[in-house]
């Protein structure tokens, strides 16, 4: 079951319409309306517990929602669909986790090559060759045969980005990709993300790296209490945040 592809000119890669989600009595997402245009880089920030992870995980349906809808390239992500359709949909949305979640039993190159082989049926030799190219792109060609436990956090996260890219997704989602890293490793991951953005990748990034937001984001969504309470360009957001809670958030970050 595929929803009709009817989105205005199809330049909206992701559209969220009145997305609501609760855990029991607790409302985590209270009506999110937003769009991400093709090639756009959106940075999502907000206080801890505001629902950022939950929001980004609903986009590839790692979390279910209670009401509303989310369209990805015109397809309703949360519509009833077969497992096969959902898997195909997910394979087109790259996701990078805070905790990397590399497969520890596989070498770096196998981490990257495995899903194209098993999910898409790409021949192993071809997938491996492409994986090596991707590792090269994230600066880890020489670590291809290393296992995750032998890599630093920053290296693991770069492999994780390469792994997501291997499925050739038109969109990449990042959930605090640098929060679990030692400070000296944050830069190497951010620079990979910057180069992705420069190549025109559509990106949704939950991050508190305000330098990255300033340099790379097209728009910032400030989320608090399960709602997007401010959407602005980085310039506006940093110079004159409108909402008092956004002002307080920025003041806290500067400390």
């Amino acid at each position: 079951m595929t929803a009709p592809v009817s989105n205005i000119g199809n330049d909206q890669t992701i559209r969220l319409a009145d997305v609501r989600k609760s855990y029991g009595d607790y409302d985590v997402l209270k009506g999110i309306d937003a769009t991400v245009a093709r090639g756009e880089v959106v940075v999502i920030c907000g206080p801890s517990g505001s629902g950022k992870s939950t929001l980004i995980r609903t986009v590839n349906r790692l979390e279910e929602i209670n009401s509303g809808s989310i369209f990805f390239e015109g397809q309703d992500v949360h519509a009833p669909m077969s497992g096969r359709d959902l898997n195909r949909l997910r394979s087109r949305i790259g996701f990078v986790f805070q905790s990397f979640n590399l497969f520890p039993h596989l070498s770096a190159v196998d981490n990257v090559a495995m899903s194209p082989i098993r999910v898409k049926g790409v021949p192993a030799a071809e997938a491996r060759e492409k994986a090596l190219k991707l590792l090269d792109r994230v600066g880890l060609r020489e670590k291809a045969e290393s296992y995750p436990a032998q890599l630093s956090g920053g290296q693991q996260q770069r492999v994780a980005i390469a792994r997501a890219l291997a499925m050739e997704p038109p969109v990449m989602l990042f959930d605090e990709p640098t929060s679990a890293l030692d400070p000296e490793m944050v830069g190497e991951v951010l620079s990979v993300m910057k180069s992705l953005a420069a190549e025109g990748m559509t990106m949704m990034c939950v991050t508190h790296e305000m330098g990255f937001a300033r340099d790379v984001a097209d728009r910032i969504w400030f989320i608090d209490g399960g709602q997007i309470i401010e959407t602005a360009t980085p310039e506006d957001f940093f110079k004159n945040p409108k909402h008092p809670r956004a002002q307080r958030f920025l003041a806290d970050l500067r400390h």
Partner: peptide, 27 residues
């Protein structure tokens, strides 16, 4: 996290079990 990562890449539940979870758990 391992299951999430596999599902996010498009693996089915059984695919994730077979290629990601069981090789680690059984080892």
């Amino acid at each position: 996290g391992q299951m999430d990562a596999a599902r996010a890449l498009g693996h089915s539940w059984f695919g994730a079990m077979r290629y990601v979870i069981l090789p680690q758990a059984l080892y």
